[in-house]
Simulated scan of single mutants.
Amino acid sequence: MAFTEYRLLTVLAQEMNMRKAAERLFVSQPALSQRLQNIEKDWGTKIFIRSQKGLSLTPAGELIVDFAKEILEKEDMVREEIDALQTKVHGTLKIACASIVGQNWLPQVLKKFVDRYPHAKISLITGWSSEILEAIYEDTVHIGIIRGTPDWKGPKHHLFHDKLYLVDREIQDIKQVMETDRPFIQFKSDSNYYQEIQDWWHRQFQTTPKRTIVVDQIETCKQMTFNGIGYAILPAITLNGSDEGLFKIPLMDENQSTIARDTWLLGYDSAFELRQVKAFVEVIEEFLETNSSHIS
């Protein structure tokens, strides 16, 4: 049966009169009668009984009409959902994000996104920026958020840059670094970031640190520094709101300009055409506009 047959049965059940039902369906009575006979033939049973007073449902007819009503209700629900797809944000937003951003910045943005678009789903993976680029190249995610200067030919949006600081509970001046016996705590990172720190260190001190502790995660490095075990070089994104009692010395390059790390949003053109990605970009832009001083 087609949806038109389901509607025919429900109208007949509502009117219980062939003439009135034919008028509502914009067909002639003979045509309506013929279509009803064909439906009853398909079901192999009588659905309506005719009399001088009109129509009445057979027991089997009651079951069939209830079924027709249920089908039409489900059709309406599906059509409403399809209409909603055109006006609401649905689907899964697939993001690959540099771990440091995923831990310290992205959650605030995602909170706004899920509050505004409750029907959307999120798939998030984190890792080093080199891993994020690989995920985008392999098309396993829609967009990536990476640190540094990306070698990317497609669309990219600059999100923010945050300064790098030498952070410690004791060292207040950069000259004191060579005087302390406390360790320099380093965390494993992508090669660009690591090289940037190494270049700065050798320009500044022309020697290696007296003692070094290497950890696998930036969060471990941060917590060890905050607990006074040693000093570290950390980006501002990790320090906001949790740096009480710490001394922060900004890193300067050879031109005495502050050294900062950039964060970028990038992906293929086709990804930025997706409704959920467009909505996410809008949320990011709003967040950056209202939180421009959050990172320094």
Score class of each variant (00 low, 15 high):
Y6V: 05
L9K: 05
V11G: 02
A13M: 07
A13V: 04
Q14H: 14
E15F: 11
A21L: 06
A31M: 13
A31L: 10
L32C: 07
T45K: 05
R50A: 05
G54T: 00
S56G: 02
I64K: 00
V65D: 00
V65R: 02
F67Q: 11
E70I: 10
I71R: 15
K74D: 07
D76T: 09
E80F: 12
A84F: 05
T87S: 15
I95S: 05
G102C: 06
W105K: 08
K111C: 08
D115R: 03
R116G: 02
L124E: 02
G127T: 04
E131S: 13
L133Y: 06
A135Q: 10
T140E: 09
T140A: 03
D151W: 08
K153I: 15
D162E: 14
K163E: 09
L164S: 01
I171Y: 00
D173H: 14
Q176S: 08
E179F: 12
D181F: 10
I185E: 02
Q186A: 06
S189K: 05
D190L: 07
Y193D: 04
Y194W: 08
R203L: 13
F205K: 04
Q206Y: 09
T208Y: 13
P209L: 07
P209E: 07
K210D: 02
V214N: 13
V214K: 06
V215P: 00
V215H: 10
T220N: 14
T220L: 12
G228A: 06
Y231P: 00
I233E: 01
I233Y: 01
L234V: 03
I237H: 03
T238L: 08
T238R: 03
L239H: 01
N240Q: 11
G241M: 09
G245F: 10
M252R: 13
E254V: 10
G267Y: 14
Y268A: 09
D269E: 14
L274G: 01
L274F: 05
R275K: 14
K278M: 03
V283L: 11
N291Y: 03
